[in-house]
Design a protein around this nucleic acid. Structure first.
Length: 270
DNA sequence: ATGGTCGTTAAACGA
């Protein structure tokens, strides 16, 4: 089974590229983030035509997560237990809930996650991000307590660069989110709860990124960040036989829309 | 050059 995650930065704009890649990549389950549309606006038809079922949650032009699967899509769950909401305003609460979607696909529990960006260290969104990650860790640890063997994949855009080598220049990120000690501690806490990065062992080294800013010719200048991850429970990690970051999908192509600013990340399971 | 590029939706604002 091949499982992938991709922050698509609008599925309506990107459907042609996502579908084109799905046809070529032999991916069984694709988790998407930043779909940027409502459930009614999600372009279901091209996925169905390829044999994929899709679950999606999105209530406006921000956030939105989805899971497309051709190996079954059961027990769909919007949000995880204890997931913090951003605001008391109803429409923004809904936005917060559109950051996590769970489903069981081919016997694997898959969560498509769009971790809050945090904006700046002083912004209330930063505290929200840390709260969100703490709640995820606690809830996910609870799942493993119930059944330590179950294969669970926590995949998506974590908006954290865990290591210095995961950004193109640490000096450029001084005082910024994504590299702060509390964010990195939150990422490590997932590992302490036995959810480990199953892609890193197959994609080691500096200069291996999953995201490149649209501005300043960042992709061409190789100025990227590694912020998209697949974390696996022990029952999932033991089945991993390979992984890749599909950098080519970040490349601009003639005759089609702009690429997402993120590349897909794929893991192969026995 | 205190910008640059994308996406949303129609003037900013978020990433």
């Amino acid at each position: 089974m091949r499982l992938a995650t991709w922050n698509v930065n609008s599925i309506r704009t990107r459907a042609d590229r996502v579908i084109d890649w799905l046809e070529r990549a032999d991916v069984d389950v694709l988790a998407m983030q930043e779909t940027k549309c409502t459930d009614a606006q999600f372009p279901m038809m091209p996925f169905a035509a390829l044999g994929y079922e899709v679950a999606h949650v999105g209530l406006n032009q921000w956030n939105g997560v989805a899971i497309a699967s051709r190996v079954g899509l059961d027990d769909v769950e919007i949000g995880f237990e204890g997931q913090p909401t951003w605001s008391s305003k109803p429409e923004e609460e809904a936005t917060a809930e559109a950051r996590a979607l769970g489903a069981t696909c081919g016997g694997v529990r898959v969560w498509s996650l769009y971790v809050p960006n945090g904006r700046t260290l002083a912004d209330p969104h930063y505290a929200y991000k840390l709260d969100w990650l703490a709640a995820l860790r606690n809830t996910a640890a609870g799942w493993l307590k119930e059944d330590p063997e179950q294969p669970i994949a926590l995949v998506g855009d974590w908006n954290i660069a865990p290591k210095d080598e995961d950004v193109w220049d640490m000096a450029a990120f001084k005082g910024s989110t994504h590299v702060s000690e509390p964010e990195r501690a939150a990422f490590q806490a997932m590992h302490d709860a036995q959810f480990t990065d199953v892609v890193r062992p197959f994609t080691e080294g500096p200069g291996i990124y999953t995201y490149w800013d649209y501005t300043q010719l960042a992709f061409q200048k190789r100025r990227g960040m590694r912020i998209d991850f697949i974390l696996g429970s022990p029952g999932l990690a033991s089945r991993v036989t390979g992984a890749e970051i599909v950098k080519d999908e970040r490349r601009p192509k003639k005759g089609t829309t702009a690429p997402s600013d993120h590349a897909p990340v794929v893991v192969e399971l026995a």
